[in-house]
Amino acid sequence: MALKPLIFLLSLFLVLGGCSPKPETPVDKDPVENAYRRLDRGDTSGAIAQLETLMREDPRPEVRDALASAYAARAGVFIDSYWGLISSFRAPVISNDQIRGTGVVARLARILTQLESRPELAGSQGLAQLVKVMASLELWQRRIDTLPVVEGPARQDLFRAMQVLEPTRKQGSRLYRALLGLVWFRSELQDGYHGWGRIEATLQKQDWRKTDPAQGRRILCDINFQQFTEWSARLVSVLGATIEDVTVAYPSKRDELRQAVRESERISRQFENAGRTTCR
């Protein structure tokens, strides 16, 4: 009977089955998984405290991802609602020659056409450049208008999440940072438009084809271009950093994205120059 060889074979397989490399850390012993459990239970502050401590000891990029997601959760930003936007993201085509826009930008563009017939009115060039900046930002904003707006202290959590991810070179982490940056960009853009509405209301009261030059100069130069210069420059700077994060995740889109950012930055610098020389 072939019993002895059979017992030998069975013993051999028992030994072979046991000769294996040590398994990796089981999922339930990973502190990052425990932090995820806290997040899914709604204990974002507890998860943040745990992960801030862990980040000081554990250099894994997963820890930074988890901590950033904890801050984002406390800010109310849940990527599962928006990741489709990232997967289909396309940079807008920015043109310095033609102002195209909707809503506020379109209405201001109509005011500009009135001002074009009055070159003697100082401040009109600055206004024109400002409208171009707003038009370029609106093109970006249309790409991200499905993202949430984060207000108040939550925006600090969002900013902290972006800070946590800044040192990492992992593509997925930089893509996540880019998404958070776009949420921050959208929120800041939303703030700016509120102020812009007041300016529009002031400008629309005038028939610029008939306005007295002195009065027109007074109105245009009362516009706080400096405030909008700083605001738009900050926005374009954040946009540039965000797009750099996207290019880490999508190297093949680097040229397309950087071209769009360069155009936006150039328009912003032109506005800065026009603002400095106007209304002296």
Binding site: I86, G172, R174, P251
Partner: peptide, 10 residues
């Protein structure tokens, strides 16, 4: 992996 890892290029 995270979902952003899955959607990055590499």
């Amino acid at each position: 992996f995270s979902i952003t890892d899955a959607f990055s290029e590499d």
